[in-house]
Write a protein that binds this DNA or RNA. Structure first.
Lengths: 119, 119
DNA sequence: TTATCATATGAATAATCTTTCATATGTATA
DNA sequence: TATACATATGAAAGATTATTCATATGATAA
């Protein structure tokens, strides 16, 4: 703490620290949340997610849509699924992937808008 | 493409691929968006962001709030700032950091809600 | 203008992650 | 039941990243 803080400043600072402590997530939740952001922080996986935001796709079609190799796409989908970014269901021989829920759709939308602020 | 797709299925599939192509971001935008998610995908940086979501803080107070070392926090803030997650302004000797904008606040809120779905 | 305070930065090491290749699993069909 | 098909997975190599230490910068106060 800066040595020349006034008493009022010190009190405000204490209040801030308390607010932060009260609001802060547990280390476990923090780690989970960070892992979920990390799942969508690789261009390859983000591309998959954006493709899925147009509608459900099986692995083969996804692979075509994003232009990759089957094994890589499958690994990427596992990361997305483990982090509840996408969901999977079987249909015959195929596994169909979809965006997990509305929170994820909203994140995509918000991130796109954030990006548009650059222009 | 699966060899036994019916003509109707093939047409639907073509439609899907076109939708994806039309909606897909450029490689550059994809990279930028991914980098921004990556910025908030490390527990240390996410913790800083959550602290700032309670209100602005200078580096020293932030360092106390998240419990780290000054150099590390400074590096983390640079990553967040470079990716437009936070903003900085000078006030005397101090640099005050704030959450960049409402998009980021919404992302935090949405991510928290997504997390709450686990329980 | 020198000393001090607050923050930033470069370089290096250690840790983590992504992709690929080879192969395994599970489902449907002949 | 044997074969083909769609997807998943383990291991390993290469690439990327986070943190630390030492030091630099920029601002204020003496």
């Amino acid at each position: 703490m800066a040595i020349n803080d006034s008493p009022v400043e010190r009190a405000e600072h204490e209040q801030r620290l308390q607010d932060v402590r009260r609001t802060m997530l547990s280390d476990e939740k923090l780690a989970t949340m960070a892992a979920r952001f990390k799942a969508i922080s690789e261009p390859s996986r983000l591309k998959i997610l954006l493709a899925l935001s147009c509608g459900e796709l099986c692995v083969e079609h996804l692979t075509q849509a994003v232009g990759g190799n089957q094994s890589a796409v499958s690994h990427q989908l596992k990361t997305l699924k483990d982090n509840k970014i996408v969901r999977a269901r079987r249909n015959g021989k195929q596994i169909i992937y979809t965006v997990a829920d509305e929170h994820i759709m909203l994140m995509i939308k918000t991130a796109k808008e954030h990006l548009d602020c650059d222009e």
